[in-house]
Design a protein around this nucleic acid. Structure first.
Lengths: 334, 334
DNA sequence: CTGAAAGCGCTTACAG
DNA sequence: CTGAAAGCGCTTACAG
């Protein structure tokens, strides 16, 4: 670890026989308001370049009590939905001089808690989080510490904090209605078996659309546990093959559920290409390249990412103005 | 920004009427070697909990001259290949007490340079980077500053630094050979138009396999520019339809090229399901769900991520032991 | 066993 | 126009 000694403000100051204050002013572009001499300004600028000065952001953070860093906690950065979201947030952060530290919680509150603690220790100026199930207390804690917080993708009801989410109810209602309008009646719905708000809302949207069409009796909801997606999906379609249930359309509450289902359907030789209805979430190449192309609910990812960042930025700058946004889904029908 | 004042070591010390040194020792688990009294140790521990003390990692970093942070520069975190890689690295980093800051370069040296500077200012202990075209000077600079560096996914030849890459030549040679063995002769190869080493190696693998089979004359390489993938791909297959060229098998040097090609093929009504050969890179749901399933070169992502992290860790801990690894590809044939 | 003090690299009132 | 000095929250020799 014998790193070459970095050059510091002090080194420049010494080299020029001036005070560090002067160097700091100039290098922070405050030479006007501090009325530093033109000559001096030039000399300092040049020395900084010659000596390859790079400011130590850590020292600055400590002194300024702001790290210009935000934390982003996702379910899993390897999941393209979150990857894209992360990218959008990264872009906005960079534009505004912030760096983002990303962590994946795997929907696990323990991990999420650990991540949040680490990020707080690193003095992030704010936190954008996709809350895991059971993370209410942890996030409440964050709020009590007055750390700016924005939830994204989903929110925890009762938690008095900013969030940017899809209008999940509407997304699901519209999707179901679209299937109903096309004449489908036996619409099976697949969702994760979780209390998380976004999932509940998607289920509710399906249920209400069904009941608004007088089809409450046709409701068919498969709740699949996150731990065991493949097996449960296989069981479900085994039961279908054994005529335990029937469908004329499938509606999935998440992208991964639909992908797993497509695998299972193929593996079991269940054909979709006929007159079956199909709607998933988020789309992707699989949806586009499927024969026929598959319909899906598109989430306004760009808005979701941007809004969440700028709401956070507002809070970092301004205090505690809570903003809660529901974004409209876009139904892509094929 | 009226954040509630965080409690510091000093606060605990004051509260207990002891020195900060003592508190620091205990909270860092050094009470044994510093022979702090048992009573005292207990009291300090309890106070830390009661007062909800959270260490300030920034202050610690400044003092210790290590940030326990590494920087990871990818082409694009929204790309699942890099997303998965990032996730693996994140996992290992977390296990070892490191936090990772991710940045996306978009294969653009300007952005990459900016990112690297930012990360260095933030005093990362080391850098894992997917080098962009033209970033030789920049990375050389990093090395001269003695900042631990590992290149991943590709390397810059001539740069004396660690890397972990696929054996791209072999990957491509094997894939081409597999097609040849199946009797395909007019194998078209699609690659990005870039000097980056991994792409050159993939092209070379294809070429040598062809020439080893006496088929140099059949070589057909489409070099597509990153800026304009869709249009160029469309043009290529328009020319195919106009009989400007022909193929009995397609071999793609990257996943995204194959995905774009699949879109174009479908859009132009060119059928693949016949007796055409097809091999891509990295696989994914699209490959699995295609009819018939598509073959691909699998990269050992887990190893790639882990190796790059641990090589970096070695360098952070030990100095400048350069390690260069080429990982074997796995050809998944269907 | 415990404390006083220096110092990591910055920024910023304050003084002149 | 410029400098001396304090202080952000830690860690760690050094002294006793």
């Amino acid at each position: 670890m014998n790193k070459k000694q970095n050059v510091s403000l002090k080194d420049i100051a010494k080299h020029l026989n001036v005070s560090t204050a002067l160097v700091s002013y100039v290098l922070n572009g405050k030479e006007k308001e501090k009325r530093v001499g033109k000559e001096m300004t030039k000399k300092i600028r040049q020395a900084a370049i010659d000596m390859q000065y790079q400011p130590n952001q850590i020292a600055r953070s400590l002194r300024m009590k702001e790290s210009k860093t935000i934390g982003l906690i996702l379910a899993d950065i390897a999941n393209p939905f979150f990857g894209q979201l992360a990218r959008i947030i990264e872009n906005e952060a960079t534009k505004n001089g912030y760096t983002v530290i990303i962590g994946s919680s795997d929907e696990d509150n323990k991990k999420s808690t650990l991540l949040i603690d680490t990020l707080i220790n690193r003095q992030v100026d704010g936190l954008i989080v996709v809350p895991a199930e059971g993370s209410y207390e942890q996030l409440k804690n964050v709020i009590e510490k007055q750390i700016p917080l924005v939830m994204v993708d989903r929110c925890l009801p009762g938690l008095n904090a900013s969030f940017v989410v899809l209008n999940n109810y509407k997304a699901s209602y519209d999707a179901t209605q679209s299937l109903l309008r096309k004449g489908f009646r036996k619409i099976a719905h697949f969702a994760y078996n979780t209390d998380l708000n976004h999932m509940q809302e998607r289920i509710r949207g399906y249920q209400e659309a069904m009941s608004d069409h007088g089809l409450s009796d046709n409701e068919h909801i498969h709740r699949i546990s996150l731990m065991n997606i493949n097996n449960e999906m296989e069981n479900i379609f085994d039961e279908f093959l054994r005529k335990k249930w029937d469908f004329d359309a499938l509606f999935f509450a998440t992208n991964s559920l639909s992908i797993v289902a497509l695998h299972v359907l193929r593996q079991k030789g269940i054909d979709l290409s006929d007159k079956k209805g199909f709607i998933g979430f988020d789309g992707g190449d699989v949806f586009d390249l499927h024969n026929p192309p598959l319909s899906f609910v598109r989430q306004p990812l760009l808005d979701m990412g941007k809004e969440s960042f700028y709401i956070l930025l507002d809070q970092i700058k301004g205090g505690t103005l809570i903003q809660q946004k529901m974004l409209d889904p876009i139904l892509i029908e094929r």
